[in-house]
Structure formats: structure tokens, C-alpha cells
Design a protein around this nucleic acid. Structure first.
Lengths: 335, 335
DNA sequence: CCTTATAGAGTAAACGTTTACTTTATTTTA
DNA sequence: TAAAATAAAGTAAACGTTTACTCTATAAGG
């Protein structure tokens, strides 16, 4: 059963395809009420739906945006994507997802693909948009937005929280609650998203509290995940058994710390306080529930896609810093 | 700077567009080596990329598949999607994601959208494909696959684990380790995916162990999440304080049980054993780490998309039951 | 050396829409 | 009541490709 086209409808309804098209697009001109009814009925009866590809070709718009993630596994990406999709939907756009695995070749390949598919804009999520892609980005000539990431390329708006400030606040929160022996667990310090800025925030807060940060107070690892949190915490305890409070660069790492602390018989928050980062669902599930810095990923995703759509419609847009806040739960002792 | 088209390339290279097209598609016929080189160079120099929309129109293929999720937030969807994208990529297809929010109207709307976008296949994930959509599905005339869900519509392959069997095994695992006072926490019992089959598996295992299941041994709630797990567990403890082992219909619920147990001073696994379901990342992060039934979501997603792509290529395909297994961690005491 | 096959390359139709332009019929205006 | 304005509907070009078909020149065959 072949799909019916506008031609089929026109033939069935005894009108020209132009008329069908006009009715379809509800132009309000070019047909009488009677024909409109008639055409609509015919369309209904035949189960006709317009071919978006043909439409796209002539209107030069695909109704599609592309989203690049290192990997859409994990809570963070999932929530970002959820927000993105919601906004896109509100603007009548569809979302194509791509997993770059942080591989530049794959990324380049996906950009080409999206280019060929005539996407109207691209969201670059959770990763640094390096100047390697400058040429491609320029050539594509559609708006880009980075989401929970940064851009080396000039003129690309970023949607994110101010990581350094948020980390500063998290650290200060620990200090304010009476802690002076702090440590931090992090992923790679040169990670320009979750690494450097959070570490800087931590250091600054310490400096401002007159207890400059020693290198050994920061323990880092390959990634920002659970296992790395465990390992990092072990090494903290090896070097600084006096530590009473920890800032973890992600909730997953914090969960690792909690788990390892439990294994070592360290009681949270009595012996050790910990604050996380992200406020993923995980944070409320740990025992004790994790006090953490909230990034509202769903909202972030929404705002990024919204921004992108505005840009597609020709408005000019600028970077957006979303507010962070500290979600107080039970993992930090209050003196 | 307008995008260059095949015409521009043809003009620049002093050949016809047919020649360019042939070179582009590497047909092997219709051009000499010399022209090929020349055309390729021109393409490179101009930074030309073919317009997939125009291609799609004439070839009648969009290179796109659609994926419908109730919501892509949450670990499970994220991993499924990750697998889907990987397989799609391997088959040269792009993935459009849609969040139906389990709303039939939205679902219908998305199906229409995907139809108009000429997707070559659809994955219906994490949800029951009800006969409400039968008409639309038939009309779309492209392959469908359900993923981690079931279909009321005839002839649609399903990719999932055998939930009932897996639940049976999980329950039996508890029994085998010496537990006789079992209870289950679940979401809505009429949920045809995570509800009914898992409950049935639980009941059967109990029956086969000669301790038929009383209604109060199963506590259920609105959803399958953390809070619901907590509540369900409270009500279990109210009715059956003698319970020594719990089967949770999801890891999140299990986390809720763990959290609530901790609050009540119940020690896991000494006082109470618990087995979860899903083996999301969460399972290894709880304290103690959660013994659980593994569904390999990433693989499931991959296999579903793979199956779909095979179907698109005309092979005929059939439902796939992925193997489950029990991942032993620390939340079940062994006697 | 003439016929026939063959390879290289061009022409134009087709894919399913939208839309500017045109035609025809009807209504308004004077 | 004729001219002008308006509304309804049709015609055909265009969007950027692919591809069947055609044409030309060169190579092969006798």
C-alpha cells in the first residue's frame, strides 16, 4: 500500500494540487469554505500525511536540530536531553541525538552528517567545543549552543552554571559549618568543564578563608565516577587522615566516597562531612542523603534548546548562566 | 554564504551535474579517473556536502529512525538510547528521540510527526504499544520494534528480558539462600511491563516453594521509584515485621528500601536481605551494594535497533529475549 | 576501412511539495 | 450595465538530487 501524495488527494478531490496545498497550509486564501471541507474530508479519508522531506526541500528547512553528547548514558545526559526534547517539541523541532564518545573523528563525522541532514541548529552538550571544529561549524552556518560545556570558538553561546562560583559556594558552605580540614575529590584537573573550574573554586574559597590549599588536598582520578571517587577518597585518607569534610566534583564521586567511608568505618556526617555536585537523583538515594550543589539539568537542557530555537528564528541570543543552589540534606554536619 | 549545491560544483568543474552525482556516489561508471580526481578536488575545495533532504526525496529514504520513550530521563532510558544510537550509527541511520510522557495524544502526535519525517522504522521503548495505535502503525508501513516493553499489536517483535522468569529467579535466589519470609515492593500491578510479569514471577516462585503468596506480601505504589520504594517498605514492615527478604521491582525502589531500612535501624543484609531489578549503575553505589537482576540495557537497545535495521533492509525478524542474570553483591545474606 | 561495441559524459524527467503567476468567475462600483 | 476589483482555482517552475536515456568519440572486430 503505497503512501498517498498530494497528487492523489488532488485527483480524488477533483481539485489541483495547489488547492490541496493551500488548504493543508491553512493559508486562508485560495479556496472556498466548501472546497476546504471537501479537501479535508478527502485527506482524512485517504489517511494522507504530507511528506516532510519534500516540504523541507522546497522550504529549505528540516525542522530538526542535532544534539551531540559524549555519551547519552548516565543521569546527567538523560536529564539534559529530556529538557532539550521538551523545548524542541514546543518549537516544533525534532531532535537527532549523536554519541561522539568524545572522539574528534566521530564528532567531525556527526557534524557532517547533521550538516547533510540540514539541521537548523546544533547543541553541543557536556563537552568542550574545540577549535578543531571551527571550520566545520562556520561552514554549517547554523546556530550552535554549548550546553554544560564551553566553547573555544568565538561567538557561540554557552548555557551552564558558573562552575567556579558554585564550587566556591560549596566549599564555603563546608567552612561555614565549622570545617577547616577540607579535601576535594575530582576527575582530571584539566577537564575544562568539571575539572579546572571546580578546582579553582575550591582553591579560592580556601584562600579566602586564610587556609591556602595544599596540592595533596585535592585527589583526582581518570573520571568523575563512583570507582574514581572511592580511590580518590582512599588516597585522601592516606595523606590527610585529619580531613573532616570533602567536596566531591560529582554526585557519583560523592557516592564513592560515602561507600568507601562506610567500608572504613567512618561515619557520615559525624566523622566526615561531604558535599556533592550535580544533584542527580542519586543524591537523595544515598545513605545518608547527599547535600549537594544543584544543577538543574532538565531546565538547562530546556533553556539551551529554547535559546537555539530563538537563534534559529533570527533573534540574537547570548550565553546563559543558570543559577545553582545548595541542596541541604544529611551529609554535612552542622556545628 | 549560501550552501553550494551539486550545480555549483558542476559549474566549477565544467562537467554536468550527472557526472558530479556519479562521482559522489562512486558508481564506478560514467566518468574517467581524471574527471573523478578533478571533481573530487572541486568538491573538497568548495566544501560541498550533499543535501540529504534532496537525496531522501528522490531515493525515498530518510536514513532516520524514530524512538519513542515515555521520558528519556532516568538511567534506564539513557542506557537504552545509548545502545540504540550505537547500532543505528553502525547501520548509517540517525535517531530522532521523542518523549511521549506516556500520553496517548502526544504519542499519536509523535507518530504522525515521524511518519511525516519519513522515518524508516520506529522503536517503541519502555512502554506498552496499545492497540490504540494500530491504525497509525499499519498506515506508517514501516517496521516497529518494542524495546523493554510489549505490544498489543500483532506482528511486532519485542526485545526484552523474560521478566516473569527473571523475577522467578530473583525470588528463588532469596529462597535458596535460606529466606522464607519474603515480600515484594512493586509499582502499579497492572503495569504490563514492570508490574504484572514481575509480580507473577514472584508469586510462582513462592508457590513452587510451597509458601503461597498472601496479598499483603506485595506492597505497591504509584511508580517504581525511590520514594515509592520507601513507602512500600514501610507498609511491608507494618504488616509483616517478620519479613527477612525483599524483592524490589526496580533498583530505585530497592534503594528506597535500603534508605528506609537504615532509617528504621534495620541492618542490611543481616536483618534484612534485598534484591533489586535492573542493575543500573545505582546498584553498585548503594551501601551495601545491591544484589540485583541484570538487564543489559545498553545491549538491549543495541539489539533492538539492530533488529529494526535488519527489518528495514527486508530481512524478517522475530522477537528477542535477552538473557538476564543475577549480579551478586552484598545486599543478600547467605546462609 | 567500415561496422559494432564500449566508455565517457550530457539531457531531462522524476521525487512531493510550495508558490508566483495566470486564468476564470463573481461581486462591487459608478 | 460596463468596467474594475476581488475571490477561487489552476498551471508550472523551483527546491537539490538521482538515473534512465541519449549522444559522441574512441576502441575493437572482421
Amino acid at each position: 500500500m503505497k503512501k498517498s501524495t498530494i497528487k492523489d488527494v488532488a485527483r480524488e478531490a477533483n481539485v489541483s494540487i495547489a488547492t490541496v496545498s493551500r488548504v493543508l497550509n491553512d493559508t486562508g486564501k485560495g479556496y472556498s469554505d466548501k472546497t476546504k471541507q471537501h479537501v479535508m474530508q478527502t485527506i482524512e479519508r485517504m489517511g494522507y500525511f504530507p511528506n516532510a522531506i519534500a516540504r523541507g526541500l522546497i522550504n529549505n528547512e528540516s525542522g530538526t536540530i542535532g544534539v551531540l553528547f559524549p555519551a547519552v548514558s548516565g543521569m546527567v545526559s538523560a536529564e539534559l536531553l529530556h529538557g532539550i526534547e521538551a523545548a524542541a517539541q514546543a518549537f516544533g523541532k525534532s531532535v537527532i541525538v549523536c554519541n561522539t564518545l568524545s572522539d574528534p573523528d566521530k564528532t567531525e563525522h556527526y557534524l557532517q552528517l547533521l550538516y547533510e541532514k540540514q539541521v537548523e541548529g546544533v547543541i553541543f552538550a557536556n563537552e568542550r567545543l574545540t577549535s578543531d571544529f571551527q571550520k566545520m561549524v562556520k561552514q554549517m552556518a547554523v546556530p550552535f549552543v554549548t550546553l554544560a560545556g564551553t566553547s573555544e570558538i568565538e561567538g557561540i553561546p554557552e548555557v551552564k552554571v558558573n562552575d567556579q562560583q558554585a564550587s566556591y559556594d560549596a566549599t564555603q558552605y563546608l567552612i561555614k559549618h565549622g570545617h577547616s580540614q577540607l579535601a576535594m575529590v575530582s576527575g582530571p584537573p584539566h577537564d575544562s568543564i568539571a575539572g579546572t573550574p571546580r578546582i579553582e573554586g575550591f582553591k579560592h574559597a580556601l584562600a579566602d578563608a586564610n587556609s591556602p590549599c595544599k596540592a595533596t588536598q585535592i585527589s583526582w582520578n581518570q573520571a568523575f565516577n563512583f570507582e574514581d571517587g572511592k580511590h580518590a577518597f582512599r588516597s585522601i585518607m592516606a595523606h590527610h587522615p585529619e580531613t573532616t569534610a570533602i567536596f566531591a566534583a560529582s554526585d557519583e564521586m560523592a557516592a564513592g566516597v560515602i561507600s568507601e567511608a562506610h567500608a572504613q568505618g567512618i561515619c557520615i556526617p559525624n566523622d566526615l562531612s561531604i558535599i556533592g555536585y550535580d544533584n542527580t537523583k542519586l543524591a537523595m538515594m544515598t545513605v545518608p542523603a547527599l547535600t549537594t550543589v544543584s544543577q538543574e539539568f532538565d531546565t538547562m537542557g530546556y533553556r539551551a534548546a529554547e535559546l537555539l530555537c530563538h537563534s534559529i528564528m533570527g533573534k540574537d541570543i547570548k550565553s546563559l548562566n543558570l543559577k545553582h543552589k545548595i541542596i541541604e540534606r544529611e551529609s554535612v554536619s552542622k556545628h
